[in-house]
């Protein structure tokens, strides 16, 4: 059996991905997470001295904390199985990646196990986040320098 023939048979046998349904599920899950985030931001703005701009920091912290608790209780994986990218892309997905890796490697000890593997999944997010933020900031600085846009 050559490679092409194998690929053809594999394609025939494997179930088709319900792309449309997955997109709708991701949209709904991601939207719900963001709606909860919006409620938390409104809560901080109404009951504490936070403005729209400064409320984002405690909101992010709260969302990360909630996702951490849900991951610990084994509930976040259910949301992730349903929502796919909708549960992985918001900040809660990042929290889930850190906490689940920590739980998984706890048996290897706190230093080399938890400490060494905590950012196994989330490390790439941090790396590419920093690189892309640096690139965008560099481009914007150049554009501001030439007077194309303003800060």
């Amino acid at each position: 059996m050559d490679e092409k023939k194998f690929a053809k048979i594999e394609q025939q046998l494997s179930p088709k991905t319900p792309l449309g349904l997955n997109i709708v599920k991701a949209f709904l899950t991601g939207g719900t997470i963001c709606l909860i985030g919006q409620f938390i931001a409104m809560f901080y703005m109404t009951f504490f001295d936070f403005t729209e701009r400064t409320a984002s920091n405690p909101t992010v912290a709260t969302m990360v904390f909630l996702a951490m608790v849900l991951t610990g209780l084994g509930q976040y994986k259910k949301i992730a199985q349903f929502g796919g990218a909708g549960a992985a892309v918001p900040i809660t997905g990042f929290s889930n990646a850190v906490v689940s890796a920590s739980i998984e490697h706890k048996s290897e000890g706190y230093v080399l196990g938890v400490g060494g593997n905590m950012f196994k999944l989330a490390g790439s997010v941090i790396l590419f986040g920093v690189v892309s933020a640096f690139t965008v900031a560099l481009i914007k600085t150049i554009l501001v320098k030439f007077g194309v846009v303003s800060w």
Binding site: M45, T46, F50, T51, E52, R53, A55
Partner: peptide, 8 residues
């Protein structure tokens, strides 16, 4: 300001 907090 167009900030919601200020409007509130």
């Amino acid at each position: 300001s167009a900030d919601n907090k200020i409007v509130h």
